[in-house]
Design a protein around this nucleic acid. Sequence first.
DNA 1: ACAATATATATGATTTTTCATGTATATTAC
DNA 2: GTAATATACATGAAAAATCATATATATTGT
Lengths: 156, 156
Amino acid sequence: MSEKFIDNYLLFQLALASHTFSEEFYDQLRAAGVSPPKWRILINLMDCPGMYLTALAKYALYEPSRVTKLVDQLVGEKLVERRTSHQDRRRVSIHITARGLALVKPLIVQAQIHEASVLAGLTPTDQKHLKSILRKLAQRHAEDMQVGNLKLVDTV
Amino acid sequence: MSEKFIDNYLLFQLALASHTFSEEFYDQLRAAGVSPPKWRILINLMDCPGMYLTALAKYALYEPSRVTKLVDQLVGEKLVERRTSHQDRRRVSIHITARGLALVKPLIVQAQIHEASVLAGLTPTDQKHLKSILRKLAQRHAEDMQVGNLKLVDTV
DNA sequence: ACAATATATATGATTTTTCATGTATATTAC
DNA sequence: GTAATATACATGAAAAATCATATATATTGT
């Protein structure tokens, strides 16, 4: 029972929880032929269609140059498309296609079922506390990344 | 204020929290010339010296073949060493060297200071709840991975 | 004891990811 | 209006990570 540093170190505890449950779900994703990075891009575009590439990168937690390449692939599969902004011709807004939606929608259902199975391991009180605390922690990301006041989409 | 799927999806909330705070600390690590994967290996060996490679992989959340390569590098830097087990000659136990300890110890202090700064954003009650819930969630990893009854070290 | 199977780690090819830099457009300062 | 700077995204070389498989040793069943 010797107490290890790791076991009470918040960053490790968060990484462990995130890793454990994400890998569980990623197995389901891969079975459906979707790589985890593609899922992360598609689900963010579902929530916020037409997001600019940079905003998408911040929300999906990837570097912009990586998102460029992921989008290249997704465009090749006709799951998303690029549109150059007319307001600012440097910017590219990314749109999920009907095909992309058709792929991602059933996965959202699976994700919700899986999430429920994870939460089922906690008491209802713990469930509420966890979500509430994670929301508070998320505000720090918004501040650090200036995600809050970021221009997200191409409003024509 | 439209509620997005992502913002209330546990796996994303966990990934976001983990990513945000880990990246904060990784900046400090890189400033000290230590890559995040090397830190993860070293800190786990600090907690449990002589761990077998497979056990180390499970605790550090990496695939065994990746740990082989990380250990190769760390051996090259004389931060760890490999020892073949006499009980089971397939197994390799990894030991942190004095040089490795000297490198990692000050980083632990930095990690604790950083962790405190993260927790400072929460009320004491939330802090307690968060750690307690994350411990409960960690049990699932132990079960899934059979980390609990795994033979960890080379007991000579 | 022997064959068949399983486990621990390593290896090398392939794929991903990162890092530094390039190109185009926009913004700011003068 | 022009030069200087900043921003958005893309590109390509380099580094890292993954995947399938190899090798060595252990374990199991007969």
